[in-house]
Design a protein around this nucleic acid. Structure first.
Lengths: 348, 348
DNA sequence: CTGAAAGCGCTTACAG
DNA sequence: CTGAAAGCGCTTACAG
């Protein structure tokens, strides 16, 4: 493997000139540059990573901690992992994958050995053991997700509370007065997974504020569970006319199928919005209004902020909430006046 | 961050002694060792990764190339990625994730810069562009999967051909004379994905050898597709009595559901085996006989072989096929004699 | 615009 | 069983 000395010799310059030419950290004469470029190409030179880390005190490696849980929805998980990796590469960083068993010990290892310049934290729980570890290590990190106590942390995420509120508002604005929420399986909430909890909180506040009837169900991803979830909503909401989905794609599809099977017209009888959805609702029947959760968006921003802090040394804590966007596809329509009157009357 | 000098000073020894004590590469006096351990604990010392790479000419990092395709089945993909990462950690290696866009350039980068000691290649295609790249780079690598031309390569994988043959043999031994294959979606084969092709090849050879009637279908993961796949099998196999599944879990479940919906008794009328399955068939109705594909098995072996070659410098090519294991769960039963006679007669 | 040189923090022959 | 020292291949003040 060619070293910087070989390049310098071939180009007839000093190694420092080669280094500067490659890093672009000072201006280089046109002719010198040409000779260096030629030598680099000729020799297939590539700076040794270890030497660079040692001399430059930067590794250009980000650690990624993304624990798998029993209830992990793999397609979404993968999308986030890939989004981080791609965003990192776009900024010339590589990504080191930390496994679960190794979650805390791994953070210590890659951080104390200066293997990674920073850490991206995915699948954040409300009370996440990685928080304390990262704090005590004084490691640079960015969380994709918002834990309960964000003191001293740097967090980025979709504003799930606002997303839930936006979903409810759109339904309420369309005259819907009796709104169901299909959430994730119970286990997720019990485990303290942060975004379902935040979405639920936003939902609760919005239905309260709008004074609409509401009910919540948390089905597992089985046919039986989604079926009984719809039954429960119908039972608990005698005038069931609006539905917010904050669940995974298979469940969302199953819920829609069940509504259809029961002869419930979407969007006429029940209008539907998917909130914080990590999937496309375009090919649903009917296509659903959606407040999308775009992995690329939060991950790119997280990596951007992390890299900035690495390269410019800025510290400081923050919570950056990405404003929800509402995409209309026709699954929310105003209640027909004929229907609206008696119900409104009934509620007064 | 404490350096090795700090530890040496605190322990009252030279830095080389600290280094040797930590690496275990030479024997250390009991008392010296105690003082060093104490100093390490006290200072929270951890060897600088860059310095180690540079001086030791080993990085303890493995690169992992696992491209995502449109047809990637994420749960299985994730299982392999995690299995590699865990196996690597067990041997004190970290794993660098290479993204798709970066597939070939990334190999060049981590390899030429000596960032990674070796490469684990997942999702191998029959004609994979990464092969040539790795060959020309002279990089240490192990493939999990068997491409068409394995010259100069080191490959590990479940023996999918033998798995398919084993599945057919068990069905044929049970008197099944008319065997269907449910494969993956067509696209996978067209793309040259290696294991579905190998499984199909093994199936073709086995049905030929056993002289049984056969038909193959390749449904997409939609309800309509699985439904029509079953219809096709019934149409093409008038005496349809055996079925080999080499598809993903959702399709397998849907196929079984469709058989049940048609009133076809499993295993009586049609006996079923899942071959090369990356999922559990225990909670299927009925539970299926299965020849499992265990990510941990092939990935651990691949990492083991790669690490060995890194640490002992052994080169050499090989293809290591993991023998299929047959797990009985009761979904294959002998044809009833009363049924067998007329059909056998019909075939003669 | 360019070079000589120190130094990053380890590992590993070499020596005793 | 232990130490002094060379050297891994870069980056970056320092100097001109």
């Amino acid at each position: 493997m060619a070293s910087i000395h070989d390049v310098a010799k071939a180009a007839g310059v000093s190694i420092s000139t080669v280094s500067y030419a490659l890093s672009g950290k000072r201006s280089i004469g046109a002719d010198t540059r040409r000779r260096i470029d030629a030598a680099v190409a000729e020799l297939g030179y590539r700076a040794n990573a270890g030497a660079r880390m040692l001399a430059g005190s930067r590794t250009n490696i980000l650690a990624l901690t993304a624990p798998l849980h029993e209830d992990t929805y793999h397609p979404a998980h993968m999308r986030f992992v890939m989004a981080v990796t791609k965003a990192a590469r776009a900024r010339d960083y590589d990504t080191l994958l930390l496994v679960q068993d190794d979650a805390t010990a791994g953070l210590e290892r890659v951080t104390s050995s200066a293997l990674a310049d920073g850490v991206v934290v995915l699948d954040v729980d409300m009370h996440d053991e990685r928080i304390e570890r990262l704090r005590s290590l004084g490691a640079r990190s960015v969380f994709v997700g918002i834990p309960e106590d964000t003191t001293g942390l740097r967090c980025v995420d979709l504003d799930f509370e606002a997303a839930a509120e936006l979903a409810v508002d759109r339904l309420a604005d369309a005259g819907r007065r009796s709104i169901g929420l299909v959430g994730h399986p119970e286990g997720l909430y019990g485990r303290g997974s942060n975004f379902p909890l935040r979405f639920r909180r936003g939902f609760g506040e919005a239905v309260e504020r709008r004074g609409v009837a509401h009910a919540e169900v948390y089905p597992e991803e089985t046919r039986a569970a989604t079926r009984s979830a719809v039954a429960t909503l119908i039972e608990r909401l005698p005038e069931f006319d609006g539905l917010v989905l904050n669940c995974n794609e298979p469940v969302a599809r199953a819920i829609l199928a069940e509504l259809t099977a029961r002869g419930i017209d979407v969007p006429g009888a029940v209008s539907v919005v998917a909130g914080g959805a990590n999937y496309s609702t375009r090919d649903f029947a009917p296509p659903l209004d959606v407040i999308p959760l775009i992995a690329e968006e939060s991950c790119e921003r997280a990596v951007e902020l992390l890299v900035e802090s690495i390269e410019h040394g800025d510290a400081g804590e923050f919570v950056e909430l990405i404003a929800p966007r509402y995409v209309t596809r026709g699954s929310v329509v105003a209640r027909a006046a004929s229907e609206a009157s008696p119900r409104t009357g009934a509620r007064v």
